[in-house]
Design a protein around this nucleic acid. Sequence first.
DNA 1: AATATTTTTTAGACTAGACTAAATTTTATT
DNA 2: AATAAAATTTAGTCTAGTCTAAAAAATATT
Lengths: 230, 230
Amino acid sequence: MFYICTENINTMNSLTEENYLKAIYKLVDGEKVAVTTNAIAEKMNTKAASVTDMLKKLSDKKLINYEKYYGVKLTAKGEKIALNIIRKHRLWEMFLVEKLEFGWDEVHELAEQLEHINSEKLVAQIDKFLDYPKVDPHGDPIPDSNGKLQIQKSALLSTFKKNEVCMMTGVVDHSPSFLQYLAKTELTLGSSIRISDINDFDRSLQIAIGKGKPFFISNEVAKNILASVK
Amino acid sequence: MFYICTENINTMNSLTEENYLKAIYKLVDGEKVAVTTNAIAEKMNTKAASVTDMLKKLSDKKLINYEKYYGVKLTAKGEKIALNIIRKHRLWEMFLVEKLEFGWDEVHELAEQLEHINSEKLVAQIDKFLDYPKVDPHGDPIPDSNGKLQIQKSALLSTFKKNEVCMMTGVVDHSPSFLQYLAKTELTLGSSIRISDINDFDRSLQIAIGKGKPFFISNEVAKNILASVK
DNA sequence: AATATTTTTTAGACTAGACTAAATTTTATT
DNA sequence: AATAAAATTTAGTCTAGTCTAAAAAATATT
Ligand SMILES: [Mn+2]
Ligand SMILES: [Mn+2]
Ligand SMILES: [Mn+2]
Ligand SMILES: [Mn+2]
């Protein structure tokens, strides 16, 4: 049993407020625990005192439930706004990669700007233009216009066993350097990965993509790749 | 003889600073006169006192030449920044109309937001995606990446004579209501217009588009349509 | 040339969002 | 249970951008 927010979320929230809501959403990450002031401060690259100020404001606007010294949770409305920003972020990333020849390693910062553009029609049309994609260029799911999110059940590539075959569905680390590294291999979203060997000592893997020739990846890399059983 | 700015314009200017520069550019409008504080205040929907504050700041940044009580002119660098914002505005309008099924009457406000997105590559790719358009959906010229503007020599439709044939190249009034009115007629950019009659009393026109049947437009409308001799 | 009007600038105050330093509350350790 | 450490909030300050009211300069009118 859970509640759905039917309120109009197209109210005026500042760019800063939107970023705080998004940060809180990402810190909650499905778990039901309250998010701490320090965690938000770190994520937002700001100081705890600034966060406290903003929490009061968001609380006044009924976008979060805030209890002093305890922590903070998004209200249904706050969560819906956060999901809408994430929706826009991921649609823009998809647009940049699919239509404007951007690499998957160079879209995030730009999407951080574009996600704050305020136009329902624009989002709807971009969505249509891309033919309603379900995931973004990094394999992250795109919330629908109601803020509903398709949860995908993937596991870290490092948890698969020898001779298993799986499909790459996403990445954990989104840093340009990691994405650029992957771009130099055959590891892309949708790749069929066969684990041909696992090194007992360092947990590094020998893998093969489709019918390609096998190559090595470190455990560090394998821990940052998401895959689903085929 | 005139000077070209070769300075890097990709410095950090706030959204507000960008809007002031654009407002000043539009108020200069080719003429060499200085722009007044009150004119800027009116265009920016703000008060003269606020304008004075901003003029000091832009002057410190060497983006305008500001003399107290006299008025203000853009420096070469200030003008280049203004033209770059206008370039982005018009490219975004074109993108919205050409690729996302927006009407020409509903893109301006959205472009006011999008023009402040900061990414050289994004602009270059949108330009390429649109196949390097020369004019925006309203017939306004799109500055190139160096800030060079193709000046088009058009005249008001109200200045043409009976039986003359011309081509519609743009609009003076950009308001949604005027654009929506035009959208209901056959008057669109590129339309071949023949002036079949001019009413002496109220200067209203009887015109025909291509081989279409003639219809009337008021002098008020004719004064807001730009056309070039065919 | 003197005076009135308009335009522009200055002075002082406000808000959003940030910061530092100090106070308070919570949590961990003895 | 007392004390130390960590987390959080409060208090006070700062900047960008806005405002109103008053002062100063420029322009128009007599
Ligand atoms: Mn991203
Ligand atoms: Mn992404
Ligand atoms: Mn426009
Ligand atoms: Mn336009």
